[in-house]
Design a protein around this nucleic acid. Structure first.
Lengths: 350, 350
DNA sequence: TTTATTTTGGAAATCGATTTCCTAAAACCA
DNA sequence: TGGTTTTAGGAAATCGATTTCCAAAATAAA
């Protein structure tokens, strides 16, 4: 008869009272602990359903000191790599009965710091992060570990900050991509690169250089650009290069957006792709298969990267009781795959 | 000298002890309440920074009974409309000092229900939801309101469930799109539609029909398809239609993926777009401007939709103290814009 | 049957911030 | 200066679930 006040949450006390046991017993039953009998568990479950009980994570987290929640911070959720990673992370969290909080840094250092702060306040157990393009300091990463929260960096990592990591084999992938261009008969291969303070771009450039060196190609210095990650910039840069006397016959772009810029530039100059100009991009963004011609690109297995990152937490960190001995940080590398499409498939000339 | 145990969180008690005031005073200072003097506030702020104090949301939320957190559930984060909406929602939350938790339903009803459950357990103050394609029941929406959590449906809404809503003007947008095709001289316009139990698809079909009727066009029944939202299905369906004797000269697709399928089908049959076949899609996905030819599409102003949704919470619900009188639910409509590109721009024949 | 052991359930402390209520001191006012 | 009103800060209760410790009951062992 006694009704709870309206707008008041049903608690384990309500359940306890209504079936005549102690709240602690209800808690044990709901958590399926051995010290509650099957009989009680059934009773409690039924009553919980009847009263429309909803577990209060805040209370539980407060008491438990951990939140069974993973936080992930990515530059953008709508970039193929990251949305794939998130989808993998989400599945793993789900399987392991953990919550997932997703934050976007929007490629801004300031927002990334705020995101870290939010997640720490939320008491997450682990943070997975892929750094924003602006991020040059690791102060906020130190914050994370200072608060005894586990940290895994993935894809856009800062190797100078010791932590678990999951990375791409950027060097090898780029090497393979450029080697492919060489095999297709391209000889004057230009690089559309990104800022080198970001390891991913530095590595992709290294892979490019390695392949160039191996093939003993003569490349003029101005074939290397380091600020052409976006479509517009790449487009104007490529237009410039293609108009020059000694024009490149292929472009290796560290991003698909840059590759798209190259494609547009070449087409608007009336050049044929892949006959006059070959193009290979990076990331296998969704649009690469719908351009004309379709763009070759390096696929990064984003989902696998995400799974690997969160798996370091579930399989490795959670499992080992030991208080995380220093310097036994794991680094996992996920191999990328070159997806060859029309933009780099030249019909042999002879 | 007395050190806190390692791995133990710094609390307001630590701050209080170290500057010799009561915890309640510290709380007031940190929350900038009037009953703490400026002197104390400065002291507390300094000490908090010094001790590297981090506010514990779980404790605060538990006590406060609200979490200053908004939850959003979308089918997919990497669909243009939703990632745009999320970005708008995020900005608003940030401005209003609220946290945001993002969940994906992955177009699955089961996962959508789980997401609702998670958010309710997290004690969010408001849930913004765009329904999955599978969702036919509103049981979980009832759950939300039963727990006194505010609800705003957006874009993919179920009008049979009373709540605040933000929607697209699907009918008008579709009507305009088809009218545009008519003005470009297309006469045999086919519809690539989606399942009608989803209002968005139903409405887009209605808009299409309205324009067809107004232009007094004769359209055979088999020009209307209702299961062609995805590229593959649309492609085979369009191939079929274009091979038939009485082939359509234009397609209005309720999704850009379907439009892409139409584009591929037409091209592989050697038909010219837009001369032989016109195409207009829906959503203005990122790839629509990079296809050849570029696809005309209806842009939905996703960011504005997201902002409108969360603004109903911040401006309307939070502001009004009144306990949400029944039946004064708000519905906002955000006008879409037709982006005309090459795929539907036919050079006048004569 | 008695003792030892295992099960089962309860009482009470606890997590950390907020908030209500209250008192002492300070400021104000004739 | 005596009385009143503000103001500043503290004590203690509280949010809801978990967990430790303990006792009673049930079971097993002797």
């Amino acid at each position: 008869m006694e009704k709870r006040a309206k707008n008041k949450r049903v608690t384990i006390h309500d359940i306890a009272r209504s079936i005549g046991v102690a709240p602690s017993t209800v808690s044990k039953a709901l958590n399926d602990l051995p010290s509650a009998s099957a009989k009680i568990k059934a009773l409690v479950d039924a009553k919980a359903r009847e009263l429309n009980y909803k577990h209060n994570s805040n209370a539980a987290n407060l008491r438990r000191g951990s939140s069974r929640t993973v936080g992930v911070i990515v530059p953008r959720v709508n970039v193929a790599l990251f949305s794939d990673a998130i989808s993998g992370i989400e599945e793993c969290c789900f399987e392991n009965d953990h919550r997932l909080i997703i934050c976007q840094s929007d490629e801004s250092y300031e927002k990334e710091v705020k995101a870290v702060d939010t997640l720490l306040k939320q008491n997450v157990d682990c943070i997975l992060i892929s750094l924003s393009r602006e991020t040059k300091s690791t102060h906020h990463l130190r914050e994370i570990t200072n608060h005894y929260v586990h940290l895994v960096q993935f894809d856009r990592v800062d190797p100078s900050f010791q932590s678990h990591m999951v990375v791409n084999d950027n060097i090898r992938a780029s090497y393979n991509a450029v080697k492919h261009l060489v095999e297709q008969g391209y000889r004057r291969i230009a690089l559309l690169g990104g800022p080198e303070y970001l390891p991913v771009y530095k590595e992709r450039k290294d892979g490019y250089l390695q392949a160039i060196k191996e093939a003993e190609l003569e490349i003029p210095y101005y074939y290397l650009t380091d600020n052409a990650v976006k479509t517009d910039l790449a487009m104007s840069r490529v237009t410039e290069l293609l108009k020059a006397k000694n024009r490149p016959d292929a472009f290796f772009a560290v991003s698909d957006y840059a590759a798209l810029g190259a494609l547009k530039a070449a087409r608007s100059l009336g050049l044929n792709i892949p006959d006059d100009v070959g193009i290979v991009g990076f990331s296998n963004e969704i649009f690469t298969e719908v351009t004309t011609p379709a763009l070759s690109s390096v696929m990064q297995w984003g989902k696998e990267i995400g799974i690997a990152a969160v798996d370091i937490y579930f399989s490795h960190i959670l499992r080992s009781k030991s208080p995380a001995k220093k310097q036994d940080f794991i680094t996992r590398t996920i191999d990328s795959t070159l997806i060859i499409r029309e933009s780099s498939t030249r019909i042999p000339a002879h």
